[in-house]
Structure formats: structure tokens, C-alpha cells
Design a protein around this nucleic acid. Structure first.
Lengths: 113, 113
DNA sequence: GTTAATATCTTGCGTCGCAAAATATATATT
DNA sequence: AATATATATTTTGCGACGCAAGATATTAAC
């Protein structure tokens, strides 16, 4: 196997933006939502999520606001217009790569001799 | 955009193994063949290819033999049985990830408001 | 004879997913 | 009441790999 995370490069960004398209969410919730929607395939650890969120905030793709629930801080993240554009570009690029893989593997299915 | 190579992580291995499934090839030829088959999408530089080949030889997935053409050395690479298995595993894993992306982006198409 | 294509190989950089750990509150178990 | 588990944010540092860049040498084109 290649490194387990090889194929996931970039898909984490797609996943985060995808769930934020639907609703503002806080970090912990983002992880859960992604796990649900991807049928348990993407189970990103928080150490993966937060750096992505910070990068996105700095890039202006998302914004954050604090809410206090009980004594607990929740930082909600909101997808901005530029983030939607970025998401569209990412998704297009991912699919282009996926098509490339299909092309290159055509006639080389793993079950052929 | 994410780093241009993000989505290509791991796909280079798939591409190399895919073209070697069909025929023994030498390095320079592998790059050309991959470019043809992928319709120009994968244009891997030789600095990317060779380390992959060396890794594969060391893993036993491929073997190499020298051939002298004129005064020029050509190192042909041959896919071994374990390499075929590895290829099958890789491709399955890639498609699993691609399905995950489709799931997570379902209902979040980039053209929706 | 000079340029361009062919061919192999090496060095080093940057990115990013993740493990691991630190910190703190809330809920459930006993 | 004490303990364990779930909730929640944050930081540090590692490892893998695609690539740019460059070194070296042969062959073909002009």
C-alpha cells in the first residue's frame, strides 16, 4: 500500500467545504457531519481538521464566529463566496484527475490476466 | 487551488503500474506512454518517475534488466506478480476514495446556489 | 558544429494528513 | 461523590511524495 493518506490529499479540503455549503458548523461537528455524509469513509482526526480551518480563514474562504454554549466555547465556521468558488475549482480539478486515472487504467483492470 | 500535486498523490504509482501491465518499458518510455494513454493529463517529470521505479524494484513489485542499444543504456522494467497484486489493491483503494468524494459532494454541486 | 531530442540519475524543497498530547467542560456510570 | 466517557479546541512534529532543477551522456537533425 502507498501511504494510507496518499489518495486523501486534497479531499479533506473538499469534504470540509462540502459540508459547510449546507450549514454553518463548528469543528467537532464538521468531523461528525463528514463521517455521516461519506458513510464513514472520511473520519478525519481533529489534528487534521483544524489546520485546514485556520488556512481557510486566513485565505478568506471561510469566516468564524464564537458562540458560548453553557461554559463551552463553540467556534462556528461560515462558507464565504470565495470559498464556494474555491470549492468549485477543487471539485473540477479532482474529477479531472479521476478521469485521468480511469483513462490510464483502461484496459488494465486488476482482474485481467 | 491546493498544491497542484495534491490530487496526484498515489496516482503516479497507479499510472506506472498500469502501463507496465501491458509491456516491459524503460523509464523515458514510461513517461511517454503514460502521457499518451492519459490523453496528456499525466505528464510526469523524470524526477518524479525514477524514485518511484527504485522504490518498486526494492519492494519486488517490478524487476529491471539492462539492454545496450548502440552505446546507450536502456533499463527495462518488468511488472512482477506481486506488483499486479499491489496495482489491484491501489486501484481499489483509489476508487474507494473517489466514491467517498462523490458521497460527500452529493447535493453540493458547485453550480448550486 | 550546434541545437534538440533521447536517456538516466541525484539533491533538496514544500505540502499536508496524521499521531500524539495538552487542556477543559459536560454527561453517564458506579 | 468519584470516575469514566464524550464533547470541544489547540499545538507540535513526523513522514511521504510529487516536483523543480540540474548533472551527465548519447543520438539525431539542421
Amino acid at each position: 500500500m502507498p501511504n494510507a493518506d496518499s489518495f486523501k490529499r486534497g479531499t479533506v479540503e473538499i469534504a470540509v467545504l462540502a459540508v459547510l455549503r449546507e450549514e454553518d458548523l463548528y469543528g467537532y461537528q464538521i468531523v461528525q457531519r463528514i463521517a455521516e455524509k461519506s458513510d464513514g469513509f472520511f473520519t478525519l482526526p481533529l489534528g487534521t481538521l483544524y489546520p485546514v480551518l485556520y488556512r481557510f480563514v486566513e485565505s478568506g474562504y471561510i469566516s468564524d464566529r464564537d458562540e458560548i454554549v453553557g461554559k463551552r466555547l463553540r467556534k462556528y465556521y461560515h462558507l464565504e463566496a470565495s470559498g464556494k468558488d474555491y470549492y468549485a475549482a477543487l471539485l473540477a480539478e479532482y474529477r479531472k484527475t479521476a478521469r485521468g486515472v480511469e483513462l490510464i487504467t483502461r484496459g488494465c483492470e486488476s482482474d485481467e490476466t
